[in-house]
Design a protein around this nucleic acid. Structure first.
Lengths: 209, 209, 209, 209
DNA sequence: TATGAATGAGCATTCATTCAT
DNA sequence: CATGAATGAATGCTCATTCAT
């Protein structure tokens, strides 16, 4: 392993360290109330150091979303590529994947939404925006391919697969959002899994022939 | 009409005037970028005056959400109270009601979410929190009663009505959120109505026997 | 006097108050080391208030230069408009005017130079830039008219008056700059009057026929 | 040549390398906007290395001025020491020398002034201050000796030579400053040579008998 | 009631400087 | 000697909120 390579890895570690701290602070205080100093001290670094790894606060936040999307994308790719699964089984794996994504970072949607607001978009570097957009589309594509498979096999109703994927995403968004609200209102009781399962179940009834 | 009463009414009018201005400014700039001075000048008032009618910026924002919920509640109550409607027709009316709510204030969910975030909650007066919670529950109850009716009449599958209502709300949240993102990403094309109709349709397939 | 008018006057007073404080602080600390908080506390105001009257630090500094130029312009206009003066007498009055300008604000040139640097220019409002440019040209024009008079009367050598005015300004700049340096190096001894008079004297020998 | 000596020479080379880079960066960005990192990367060194050769940013800047003064001093010494020149020819050589100094580093005066401002002075080491003061005085002395020669030969008017030298320096400062402003205002048109020659010409008329 | 000038705490960001390697 | 990652103090500017009129 060359010196160059080791440095790259070290740099990656620092980014991780900061992102983990940022996630914690954003979760606790929300994006606007969280200060860069909060994040820095959570990461046991100085404020200046944050700017060595992220252009600004918005880009730090966006990078969190990117990481989620990467994770989602990997999970989805895996689901749609696995051979020998019946469409119904695929749906189940899909459900689990989405639930894991939520578990991975429950604030996913708030971040995703912030990300796409015009307030934020101007502060991001074009590459980051491109990465995010591509991943989002790729994820929707992967979902769509699952539905397509079911339609082809005559198990699902003949609806446009990409539309179905969008619906699913909408549903997912709503569930997370709603689940989060509940969690905050009820202070701690996590009924997210329940809500995730039930509407998914109901949606599937609508998809199956 | 006594003087007292007239004053009360006058006060209500001012509140309306401010809320309308706030809605416009929030829509245009987003909650965080909108300043109290923006709102004041949109309302053709001075900044100080805003604080005669709202305790602080958060409470002003929360009052907007409250108004939405009141509107939603009225529409829902109306749907579930109307006699002589078949469950299927009720679902249609419900769908229209929800779409109208969205049209009334497309930022509804962002506001609703802001409202329930820990960032905001500490700044609100207990009465306001209570009002909002009650209205939310009441709205969910009204939706539930629609599903209950269908279940009783044997038209809908036998699922717990309140659960169904929650599902619907989740779905609605997701659609709005997703629709908004799309609107921002696609810059102007309003595909919200489409997205609202399709998942509703699919959900209904899952509800019907 | 209407309320409007009184308010305008009050506003003008505040601007003056801030500019006087700024001048003191800039003189003492230099533009870059002077903080807005320094200026605010010198003016016995809060930092935020400064921004009610000046867009930013650069514009505050530029406004100081503008004031100098206004003063210079008035003095020069007066010199060239007064009737019945011989060219030589005019030169004397001119010399006095320039010395007074320096006395009015010894940092004039440093400010003027800052003003014209590209570092600063971007931060200024177009109107301010226009005002300053016009005043500078007008001042040079007024100086030129004095020389023109002398040339017409056959007392001064036939040199392009505007060139002479530029020369004079260069000389003035140099003297102030040099005088200032000396003041700082010699810590307190003010030999500016001397240096201003002597080169003026020598320059005039070159102008007279 | 001993090892010690070679090291010294090597050290001098590095200092030169850094100063050249600094000059380029200061010219391009101005002193305040230029960062030590800019200079380091222009010099193809790391930021830390700069501090091995210069105590701090101010001292680096001051060293640039020092170098100019050294150059000026050499040129002036040469002018006044050359035998068999008539006073008028000496003036011409002087003019050329000053123009060359300006060409060598057009920012000379801004640097010189920065140097002498109270903003900077506190950060400099006493030795550096002493060097600069001595060089300045020596330069003025060299100029004065040129005038003295002319006065002695009865070609120039009988004015105190040191005063004349100061005048000349003032004029030079003013011209450079003014020329620079013009360059910035007129964006590119370089009229410095013209302005330098004309006032010099006019000043000389005042010096000649 | 209404005003709007004034406040001042708060924050993102920068950058000269240091120091472990 | 050289590095360059890390530092952390410093600062321009914003804006929710107050209060004298």
């Amino acid at each position: 392993m060359g010196i160059q390579e080791r440095k790259e890895r070290e740099k990656g570690r620092r980014r991780q360290q900061i992102m983990i701290a940022a996630k914690r602070v954003f979760s606790f205080k929300g994006f606007n109330k969280a200060t860069m100093e909060d994040i820095a001290s959570e990461a046991e670094l100085s404020p200046g150091t944050l700017y060595l790894y992220f252009k600004n606060k918005d880009e730090l936040c966006a990078s969190l979303s990117l990481r989620i999307l990467q994770y989602l994308n990997i999970r989805l790719k895996h689901v749609s590529s696995e051979k020998g699964l019946e469409p119904e089984q695929r749906l189940d794996t899909l459900k689990e994947a989405m639930y894991d994504v939520y578990e991975f970072d429950p604030l996913i949607l708030i971040n995703m939404f912030r990300l796409q607001s015009s307030e934020t978009l101007n502060n991001l570097s074009p590459e980051l925006i491109k990465d995010i957009t591509e991943l989002l589309n790729s994820s929707l594509g992967a979902m769509a391919s699952i539905f397509e498979d079911g339609i082809n096999k005559g198990v699902f109703i003949d609806e446009k697969p990409l539309v179905l994927a969008n619906v699913l995403w909408s549903l997912f968004s709503g569930i997370v959002l709603w689940g989060e609200s509940k969690r905050i209102m009820d202070k701690g009781k996590n009924n997210l899994k329940l809500t995730l399962e039930i509407p998914f179940e109901i949606l599937c009834r609508g998809i199956r022939k």
